[in-house]
């Protein structure tokens, strides 16, 4: 189980590869890897979005993501999980979040990754401020998925 918050752009596919390479003892133990990547759009609610600032609560955010990762491990039969989340200044097309789940079987991998993503969105302390062409605004509700 691993959680990382980063202010630098990241490559989610390289993160998945690096995690697997760093844990050779897991090779052969998992038959399913479910990967969700959330990427910044250039539109929201009908407006052009030029950039975004992602704020978090250092300490609490990491703790919350570690808590839900551990809880996923009690609800499903998992080999490993990885969550990487951007903070700071972002631009359209940059990855925001990676949730990867390794399991023996696809049902656990799919269900746990979906659950982790929904828990992250609804409870993890992150806040988005969108930069529009003429103004900026805090996003204060999520889309339904």
């Amino acid at each position: 189980m691993n959680v990382r918050i980063t202010a630098q752009p990241f490559d989610p596919w390289a993160e998945v590869q690096a995690r697997q390479a760093a844990r050779p003892q897991q090779a052969g133990k998992f038959g399913a890897t479910a990967v969700f990547v959330g990427t910044m759009r250039d539109f929201n609610e009908g407006d052009e979005v030029r950039g975004m600032f992602l704020e978090h609560y250092p300490g609490m955010t990491e703790r919350y993501l570690e808590t839900i990762s551990a809880e996923a491990g009690t609800r499903w039969d998992l080999v490993d999980t990885l969550i990487v989340h951007r903070v700071g200044e972002l631009h359209p097309a940059e990855p925001i979040v990676l949730v990867a789940v390794w399991s023996a079987h696809r049902k656990d991998a799919f269900e746990a990754s979906r659950w982790l993503m929904e828990e992250l969105k609804s409870r993890a302390p992150f806040w988005k401020k969108e930069q529009l062409p003429e103004s900026s605004r805090w996003v204060e509700h999520n889309t339904t998925g």
Partner: peptide
């Protein structure tokens, strides 16, 4: 996370924040 009725102790850190909006939307 706590509710509004939670009782505080010396040196507690209390944070208030708007609805959270992490991840992709």
């Amino acid at each position: 996370y706590v509710g509004p009725d939670a009782i505080l102790s010396e040196n507690d850190e209390v944070a208030f924040f708007p609805p959270v909006t992490g991840g992709a939307r």
